[in-house]
């Protein structure tokens, strides 16, 4: 293994640990964090005022942010490695942080809009599977569309970064911003689907995370309508397990 590969591996490990921590927090549900899931029947026909009282925006946004970090951090390994390799050593952490900041900024705006929608659905269709079914259908159409493939392809575009001063900071944020735009384009509906489910959210979130990671690792392809359920992660796991079993 070359030194560059060892360095990339340590970045990957760190990001996986961070992602796992976020998953842990999501499961533990600290007081400052509230899931933005469509909640159960206890909110039936309540007023918006009471709804907002029981579902304050800040903890919901925090929950959304934590969810995005948990689900998306593994997808950011390559661009973060890229950002570090293309930055001066004493700016690497700063550049990577600014990249994540730009990336999260876009997802938080999208999150605010989604939370608004979720609150509305909670108000008018508490505990209903209908929104999840509708969004699930949209997700299936989007999943197989050329637009989704275009967004996935553009996620592989790693832009040139300025090296010095404020220009470097700006480029890191912009890279994160642009990466997030394509990420939102490819995954918005997949992210919406689990939060609309009245139950089983964490399990579906995990499945969606694995699917998103898998399709992110696929090589760019010509955009067209196709059945597009990436199996790359499964193929990697299968191949690597076979290799290790053969060795032992």
């Amino acid at each position: 293994m070359t030194a560059a590969e060892r360095s990339r591996r340590s970045v990957s490990l760190l990001i996986f640990v961070l992602s796992a921590t976020c998953w842990g927090l999501l499961l533990v549900k600290p007081a400052a964090v509230k899931h933005c899931f469509v909640t159960g029947g206890e909110l039936s026909r309540t007023s918006l005022e009471i709804l907002l009282l029981t579902n304050p925006i800040s903890p919901m946004l925090a929950g959304w942010g934590l969810m995005v970090l948990a689900m998306m951090l593994p997808k950011l390994i390559i661009p973060i490695q890229y950002t570090c390799e293309r930055s001066f050593k004493n700016r690497r952490f700063r550049a990577a942080s600014l990249f994540v900041l730009g990336y999260m900024g876009v997802w938080m705006v999208v999150g605010a809009l989604m939370i608004g929608g979720i609150l509305g659905l909670t108000l008018f269709m508490p505990g209903s599977y209908t929104p999840a079914i509708v969004v699930g259908i949209i997700a299936a159409i989007w999943q197989f569309s050329p637009v989704k493939q275009q967004c996935l392809n553009r996620g592989h575009n790693h832009k040139a970064l300025a090296a010095f001063g404020r220009a470097a900071d700006y480029d890191s944020v912009l890279f994160g911003f642009e990466h997030a735009v394509w990420c939102v384009g490819s995954n918005w509906v997949l992210m919406l689907f689990p939060v609309l489910l009245p139950g089983g959210n964490n399990f579906v979130m995990l499945a969606v995370t694995l699917l998103m990671l898998s399709e992110h690792m696929e090589a760019p392809r010509t955009p067209r309508w196709r059945i597009n359920l990436s199996s790359k992660l499964i193929r990697i796991l299968f191949a690597q397990t076979s290799i290790r079993l053969a060795r032992s």
Partner: peptide, 16 residues
């Protein structure tokens, strides 16, 4: 043997 250590950027131009 591979003797290369971790590369480090030491300079760059400004602008495309």
């Amino acid at each position: 043997m591979d003797m290369g250590g971790n590369s480090e950027m030491v300079g760059a131009n400004e602008g495309a």
